[in-house]
Design a protein around this nucleic acid. Structure first.
Lengths: 181, 181
DNA sequence: CTAGACATGTAACGCGTTACATGATTAT
DNA sequence: ATAATCATGTAACGCGTTACATGTCTAG
């Protein structure tokens, strides 16, 4: 089984919310903060085809009075399973270093598909990895800062700050889940 | 003229610091916070070849006593020019939304190559775009938050927070440059 | 009647990923 | 010896980008 791209997971997540057409999904990427993904047809339609070939979504052309065809996609049982498996993977150090945006994508659909318990687990994992990685960055800055130009130091400091902001966010998010349960 | 990939710019920037071999560059990606880039030979050697074909770097095999060949790259005048042009491009809203990491890459080499004036211009541009984009995100959250699941709202809020952290960082960075000049 | 939104596709291209391949030098 | 590190490459593959192509429906 081929593996699913980030765009594939984004589409799968949106289709969990409600069955939609490729055009609907494009509009979401064009008009919302999900716009970090490309809304180009050359990305979305092939991605939907791949998901269908892998049996993760199925589509049917809407039969309506109009001649304008509309192919609506919905996740299959196997698609739901694959999505949940992806979301509930443990958070690794590599995720934090290389794919923060994928982590946030995983989290953003968490409630609807994997449930609040998984969300809390995710936030705990994220907290753990951030607490272990931030000191590494700080250490690097401390030992190599001298020989780095100002802009380089500042760029690295910006990374540290953004990780710290994320850590604070994870704490706040955990408290929200705590209050609810 | 083909355009240069993000990896290409990263390599070009590192070669501005000092002439190095592909292997040296791989080690940097493997062992420093520049590790967001791949250290795989299948990425780096072809990227260096492309830069050379485009006349942006030139290489020469180090003649030494050993038989172990080492191809050392250094930027050409045209490479330096292209790099500076990339760094001093105005910061656009699209950069902030889609390519924040590219922006930080641009900034991290700013001092050595484009100078502190360009750095200040960059930080001013970044501040302007963040001040215009953060309210858009906040607005979206306010009008659509109701119908979003908790995890979706939180993920979006995390984005807002990280943009705000970046805005504060830009302010602090500007003050550092102010003190120096 | 025509511009613009709706709606879905395909094809060429570039580049990063993964895996493979080769050989020199140093440390154990 | 032999494992690890130094050092440089190549080839298949997948996917996103860009550009092109086609056709329907609605509003002015």
């Amino acid at each position: 089984m081929r593996n699913i791209s980030r765009l594939g997971y984004a589409l799968l997540g949106l289709l969990h919310q409600k069955p939609q057409s490729g055009y609907d999904l494009r509009k979401i990427f064009a008009n919302t903060p999900m716009g970090t993904f490309s809304d180009s047809p050359g990305a979305i339609y092939p991605a939907l085809q791949r998901l269908e070939e892998q049996g993760l979504v199925r589509s049917q052309v809407q039969e309506s009075s109009s001649l304008r065809r509309r192919r609506v996609f919905r996740p299959t049982a196997s698609g739901k399973h694959a999505f949940k498996a992806w979301q509930t993977k443990p958070v690794t150090s590599g995720d934090v270093i290389h794919c923060l945006d994928e982590l946030m994508l995983r989290f953003s659909f968490m409630d609807q598909t994997a449930g609040p318990v998984a969300a809390v687990q995710f936030l705990n994992g994220l907290t753990r990895e951030l607490r272990s990685y931030i000191p590494v960055l700080r250490g690097f800055l401390r030992t190599n800062g001298r020989e780095m130009p100002l802009s380089g130091r500042l760029a690295l400091a910006s990374g540290v700050r953004s990780y710290e902001a994320l850590l604070r966010w994870a704490g706040a998010a955990l408290r929200k889940y705590g209050k609810k349960s």
